[in-house]
Write a protein that binds this DNA or RNA. Structure first.
Lengths: 140, 140
DNA sequence: CGGAATCCTGACAGATACTG
DNA sequence: CAGTATCTGTCAGGATTCCG
C-alpha cells in the first residue's frame, strides 16, 4: 500500500464540494469504465493478451458470448485503439484480432486487478455468504 | 512492463481449448466484474478512499446518481465486504459509509487503472476520433 | 435523513435468418 | 468464415411516492 495512490488524490479533486462547476470537468474514472467497464471487454483483452485470435477462436475461448456481442465488443475496442483487426482475403475470409500497443499498456494494471480478485476471492464470497445468511439476523 | 503478468498466464488456462469441461471452473475475471464492473462501484470506492461519507454526502459527491442506485450500489459493496455501514441513532438518522479493510486492498490496483486512464486518455480519444472520422474512409 | 416500494420506459442483448 | 439485419423480450435504472 504505497505507490500510485496519487490517482486517488487527483480524483478527489473532481469530487470536492466547492468544485460544483456543473462539471464540464472530465473524470478519468468514467473513461476507463467507458472503455472496459462492460461485460466482455476485459475478458476479450485478457484472451488476446497471450496471442492473436481469429473471430471463431474468440467465440470458442469466451464460449457464452453471442456472435452479436462479440462483434460489437471487438468494434468498440478497435475504435478505442486497444486492438487491431487484420483481414486476410483467403477463400473463406479470415480475420485476426490482436492487441494494439495501446492495449498492451493496459495489461499490467489490469493484471493487477485480476490478481487482486484471485487473492481476495475467498474473502469476498465469505462476506457475501455471511451477509446473505444474516440479513439483520434471521429469527427462525 | 514486467510484474504481475502471471495473472494472464493463469487466466489463459481457463481459456485453453482442451479445457472445454463445460466449466464448473471458476473465472476470477468474472468475479472482479461482478464486484466493481457496474457503473457506480468504482466511483463509490474512489470517493470513500479519502474519508468516510454519509449517504447525502455521497449523493452530492457523485451528483448524477439516483437515490435508488446509490442505495443499491452501497448494499452490493457492503455485501461483498468492501465497505461498512454505521448507523448513528441521532434524531434525524445518520448513516456513515466507510471503506472496509478488504476495500482498502482494492485501492492500489484500482488506482493503477485510473492512472492508466489518466495517461492514455488522449490516445484513446485520438483513436476514437480517427475511427469515427474514417469508417472505411468516407467517399464524400 | 436515509431509505423501501411501486411503476414505467428504453437500451441492451439473445435468437434467428440472411450475405459476401 | 465473419459478419449484418431484424425482431423481440428482459431488466437495469429513473421518477415518484411513502415510511421510521
Amino acid at each position: 500500500m504505497s505507490t500510485a495512490l496519487s490517482a486517488i488524490e487527483r480524483f478527489s479533486r473532481y469530487q470536492s464540494d466547492d468544485a460544483q462547476s456543473v462539471e464540464p470537468v472530465h473524470c478519468p474514472v468514467r473513461d476507463v469504465l467507458d472503455c472496459i467497464g462492460d461485460k466482455w471487454s476485459i475478458l476479450m483483452i485478457m484472451t488476446l493478451a497471450t496471442r492473436p485470435h481469429r473471430f471463431s477462436e474468440l467465440r470458442r475461448a469466451i464460449r457464452d458470448i453471442s456472435k452479436r456481442m462479440l462483434t460489437q465488443t471487438l468494434r468498440d475496442l478497435e475504435r478505442d485503439g486497444l486492438i487491431t483487426r487484420h483481414v486476410f482475403p483467403t477463400k473463406p475470409p479470415s480475420v485476426e484480432y490482436r492487441l494494439a500497443p495501446l492495449g498492451q499498456t493496459l495489461l499490467e494494471p489490469m493484471a493487477n486487478l485480476i490478481d487482486w480478485a484471485d487473492r481476495r476471492y475467498s474473502e469476498i464470497h465469505a462476506a457475501r455468504a455471511s451477509y446473505d445468511g444474516a440479513p439483520g439476523d434471521v429469527p427462525r
